[in-house]
């Protein structure tokens, strides 16, 4: 296929494990056993997309702590990065962790795990040119659905985009205080099988404290903490699994089922993490300690409404100039003269 005049490419120079293409997910096929996949932190994913004028659910690159290094080919690309506190640099000059910038042809952007967070999102202004599987680009590597031939992104991949936006004249920070989320309390709605546990076990479950296990990936986050015991056995006849469901298998160690979860399962699900707190948990690195709080459906819906309102107000961008950077940030970089200003 001949490249259209408006088509430019992301060339992946290096990729750690776990970088994948994700849109809002492959919905409508759970009844056939097809996992939705989609972003681990939907709020950050939407923020990156909205910052470059894309629809909130457009296809973006989800980057893990394994990092990613890329350049633009056959044209420049307007890109946004948002998510955890990752360490970013453009041609060796450090950037703050939530930015919009114009990636000129040949310029090298590096994304590395920074001080906090497990995932960040790189959105390109425009539309990814790639065949979809069942209506979605979302990558589910376990079944080989979506993404680049059903797999994670690797060095050498070339991703074509129909570029839609006018180039940004400068580098801007994304003003998204909602991405600085604490992980001390994660809210859950009890059920659907909390009646498989006695009251003291529900209390132990809520009290924790829990730590995210190193055994965690896009499919599931394992939790380290008290061992829970079942009152009525641990084998149930399989039923549906919602994202954020916390199942407790026979060994009593809870497992939070995340974006790449299987569609059905046969362990009691003691509770379900509310939608707005899923991304917060997803960003927690192994070892992060937190407690759980049971909330009502009404409270969970109110939290969803707040989150939707945040995004509906639009994303504020501030041109990056030295005065906007805190001294703490600059000291952290120890490279004050290397910081890109609006004038460059």
């Amino acid at each position: 296929m001949m490249a259209a005049a408006s088509e430019a490419f992301v060339r992946v120079l290096a990729a750690g494990p776990g970088a994948t293409l994700q849109d809002a997910g492959r919905h409508g096929y759970l009844r056939f056993g097809v996992t939705a996949a989609g972003p681990m932190d939907p709020l950050a994913h939407a923020t990156a997309n909205l910052a470059v004028g894309n629809p909130a659910g457009a296809t973006a690159i989800e980057v893990s702590v394994g990092g990613l290094e890329l350049t633009a080919e056959l044209g420049s690309l307007t890109i946004a990065i948002a998510g955890g506190e990752f360490a970013l640099s453009l041609d060796g000059r450090p950037l703050p962790p939530a930015v919009v910038l114009n990636l000129e042809e040949g310029a090298v952007l590096k994304i590395r795990a920074g001080s906090a967070g497990s995932w960040c999102y790189l959105a390109v202004a425009g539309r990814l040119v790639m065949p979809k599987v069942l209506g979605s680009h979302a990558t589910h590597t376990r079944t080989g659905f979506g993404g680049v031939n059903g797999r994670a992104i690797i060095a050498g991949d070339r991703l074509g985009f129909e570029v839609s936006a006018v180039s940004q004249p400068s580098i801007s920070t994304i003003v998204a205080p909602w991405l600085n989320r604490r992980v001390d309390i994660i809210r859950v709605v009890l059920g659907p099988q909390h009646d498989y546990f006695a009251d003291d076990q529900i209390a132990a479950f809520l009290a924790g404290p829990w730590a995210v296990s190193a055994r965690s990936d896009r499919m599931a986050y394992f939790l380290d903490g008290p061992r829970l015991t079942h009152a009525r056995g641990y084998n149930i006849v399989s039923d549906g699994i919602a994202m954020g469901a916390i199942q407790v298998p026979g060994d009593g160690r809870p497992i939070v089922l995340m974006a790449d979860r299987q569609s059905t399962g046969g362990y009691p699900k003691i509770a379900t993490i509310i939608g707005p707190d899923l991304g917060r948990l997803a960003q927690a690195r192994p070892g992060t300690v937190f407690r759980l709080a049971a909330v009502s459906i009404d409270a969970a819906v109110a939290a969803r409404r707040e989150e939707a309102a945040l995004l509906a107000r639009g994303i504020v961008l501030e041109p990056l100039v030295r005065s906007h950077l805190s001294s703490e940030f600059l000291l952290g970089l120890n490279l004050i003269d290397g910081v890109v200003g609006a004038e460059t």
Partner: peptide
């Protein structure tokens, strides 16, 4: 409502709680 997932003994209804209340 978004999608329906029949299993052996139950039906899971995925819905948007900002569009319809429980």
């Amino acid at each position: 409502t978004c999608e329906f997932v029949p299993t052996y003994r139950s039906l899971m209804i995925h819905y948007d709680p900002l569009q319809v209340s429980r």
